[in-house]
Write a protein that binds this DNA or RNA. Structure first.
Length: 674
DNA sequence: TCACCCAAGA
């Protein structure tokens, strides 16, 4: 008897219990399969345990059920106690090892055992496709190619399963040419899974248009997977609107939507930072009952976090219940973005297990709010608590903190850690190291590392040009820029900030003007705040206040405090108090609650000996009740960091520090007199 | 009874 549906099965099961007639092994096997398929694993297990006789099919069915449920401990127990194992038993076990993270080595061992143990189990097409999956997951093309050769030799390369698995494997190993070739060879009749794998491969390669063309080949074939692949392909390449448009079209065409669809659509909403669309999708998810899928619930939380709606995000997370690390990570990032690091830290501490992504999230949060000490402390905590090799993105955060703090020694330690552990030096990491060395005052090291990189990208050039600028090496900055153009690396707005800042350091007004002009005319870039502020500063330092005034009048964007601050400084250098007053009005209008601005203004008047004006500004500041954080210096010693503010006597050894300082000052005075 | 293609947080 054939039991087709769960209803059939239940009916049959009840009948057999009532009648007391033991079902045949064949029927019981079918029942186990039906129960497991419909999520009733407990019932499947119970039936399996109660069976007086079992055959190899019985064992294979229950093993497969637990493989699908990712219960590997149970799978291994069953596999080892199974009295007779055939190729199917081995293939199921192999599939368990391949599809559950952390058992990849077991899969390789089992694969070898299947071929060489006595008696030989052998391998078949199922084994090969499962192994191709493993190759794709681990990205080890050499093994993939061996499997491919074996398939060619054994003549099993023509089935849809084989081709789609091969396409997927080559694509995930980064061999796009081979992927295209395989797809092209099988063009006589289009196999849906192979076509879907090809669409995915194109999107993975960033060839979205090509992917779309494949998607529209014989569109009547397309199933939910095809649509999902294309929707996610758009999303992952940043074409969020196209992703959502295709989703709408999918709904109109009445193609069945599943949990994968919603997951990608939610990512697109996050990418667009559209809370409106996010809410719409959220409503649809609730309506269609997908609100227990962890991919989807974390996706919803993420949309609200990315859009800055932290209250909604918290609420959604609470409603969805059951701890979801992805949701919590999104929340940590959301709070980091809004500068609420206390809340971010609280959430971080609430996680029982912390993976490298969540550590990275906290690191980047502290970096974003420039809490460098917290970055260093977190690093200490991480090294104590976790044993794994530090993630490149974490190191980038720490290097950033070193750069801000001008802490060369910790920076060097990180650099040697990278060399020691053999972490792959990608361009981002390389740029961070170069930036760290240059900001910590060691331009020679920065340059040496830069010159070792053959394939230099935009960020790498920008960092190096900024480094040269920072150290007053105008010619080197311009040479690097010319080399960049010669290598067809397109400059961006940051390149010109670096170049103009090089001009600022050496006072080359003409060159600065040339760059400002050239970025618009030759490179189709729009000057932003930093460019104008840089130019105003350049004019100021070159005693060309009239040009600064002219530029201020013609800046096409609303000048922000950075530009006004630069202009104020220009007024100070050129001793023009009338214009300084104008800058003051504008500055305090925008930044009336920033203590540092009042002090800057007071200093402008003080430099001119205009004590009345200075007093007026200080009184204004007092009335507004704003404070300025004291500027400080710091020194790294073996015992940690010591911070000093002006007139500070809080340090335990402050007496000896001050007497050393007095000696040094006397010596400097002597040198100056000589 | 086992195998292919689509989903999340830096």
């Amino acid at each position: 008897m054939q039991l087709k549906s769960l209803k059939d099965g239940l009916f049959f099961h009840v009948k057999s219990i009532k009648s007391g007639i033991q079902p045949t092994i064949f029927s019981s096997n079918q029942l186990i399969h039906l129960y497991a398929k419909n999520g009733f694993l407990h019932e499947a297990d119970k039936l399996f345990d109660e069976m007086p006789y079992r055959n190899v099919f019985t064992w294979n069915t229950i093993i497969a059920a637990h493989v699908k449920n990712h219960n590997l401990t149970r799978v291994e127990v069953l596999f080892n106690s199974s009295p007779r194992k055939d190729l199917v038993t081995y293939n199921s076990m192999l599939s368990g090892y391949v599809n559950i993270d952390g058992y990849e080595v077991n899969a390789l061992r089992l694969f070898v055992e299947m071929q060489y143990s006595r008696p030989v189990i052998g391998i078949d097409e199922f084994t090969i496709t499962t192994m191709l999956n493993l190759v794709a997951k681990l990205a080890v093309p050499s093994l993939g190619m061996q499997l491919h050769s074996y398939m060619v030799k054994s003549g099993s390369v023509s089935s849809g399963f084989s081709v789609s698995s091969l396409i997927d494997m080559y694509s995930k190993c980064g061999f796009f040419q081979e992927t295209c070739q395989l797809f092209g060879e099988g063009h006589g009749e289009l196999d849906l899974a192979s076509k879907n794998a090809m669409v995915a491969a194109c999107c993975r390669e960033g060839e979205v248009e090509l992917g779309l063309n494949v998607f529209w080949l014989e569109p009547e074939l397309n199933d939910t997977v095809s649509w999902n692949t294309m929707i996610s392909g758009f999303e992952r390449n940043g074409f969020f609107k196209d992703s959502l448009k295709l989703f709408v079209y999918m709904v109109e065409k009445r193609v069945r939507i599943n949990e994968h669809t919603f997951s990608s659509v939610l990512s697109a909403c996050s990418g667009m930072r559209s809370v409106k669309l996010g809410k719409e999708v959220h409503a649809r998810v609730l309506k269609e009952g997908f609100n227990t899928n962890p991919y989807i619930t974390s996706g919803i939380v993420d949309v609200y976090c990315k859009c800055g709606y932290m209250e909604y995000a918290e609420l959604a997370n609470a409603v969805f219940g059951s701890e979801n690390t992805f949701s919590v990570t999104s929340l940590i990032l959301g709070y980091s973005y809004t500068g609420n690091m206390a809340k971010a830290r609280w959430l971080f501490d609430s996680l029982a297990e912390k993976n490298s992504v969540v550590w990275t999230a906290l690191f980047s949060g502290y970096m974003k709010s420039r809490q460098c000490e917290e970055v260093f402390m977190l690093l200490k905590e991480l090294v104590v608590k976790e044993t794994y090799v530090l993630d490149a993105l974490i190191l980038i955060s720490v290097l950033g903190a070193c750069a801000i703090r001008s802490s060369l020694d910790p920076g060097k330690e990180i650099h040697s850690y990278i060399l020691r552990t053999g972490i792959e030096m990608d361009k981002k990491l390389m740029s961070s190291i170069i930036d760290m060395y240059s900001k910590c005052g060691n331009i020679t090291y920065a340059e040496r590392i830069f010159k070792e990189v053959m394939k230099r990208d935009k960020v790498l050039y920008n960092v190096m040009i900024a480094g040269y600028a920072h150290h007053g090496h105008e010619d080197e900055a311009i040479n690097a820029f010319n080399e960049m153009l010669g290598r067809d690396v397109r400059p961006d707005a940051a390149t010109f900030v670096a170049l103009m800042s090089a001009c600022r350091h050496v006072g080359s007004v003409e060159l600065g003007e040339k760059f400002l002009h050239s970025m618009t005319i030759d490179h189709d870039l729009t000057p932003e705040t930093d460019h104008y502020a840089c130019m105003v500063d350049l004019y100021g330092r070159a005693n060309q206040l009239e040009k600064a005034v002219l530029l201020m009048r013609n800046i096409p964007i609303e000048p922000d405090p950075v530009i006004w601050g630069a202009f104020l400084n220009a007024c100070k250098i050129n001793g023009n108090m009338g214009l300084a007053r104008e800058a003051e009005d504008n500055l305090l209008r925008i930044e009336g609650d920033t203590g540092a601005r009042y002090i800057q203004l007071a200093n402008v008047y003080a430099a001119e000996g205009n004590w009345n004006e200075m007093r007026r500004v200080m009184e204004k500041m007092k009335r507004k009740n704003v404070k300025k954080l004291a500027g400080c210096s710091w020194v790294y010693t073996e015992n940690g960091v010591s911070v000093f503010t002006s007139g500070d006597t809080s340090h335990a050894r402050s007496e000896s520090i001050y007497s050393t300082l007095a000696c040094l000052t006397t010596e400097i005075d002597h040198i100056a007199l000589e």
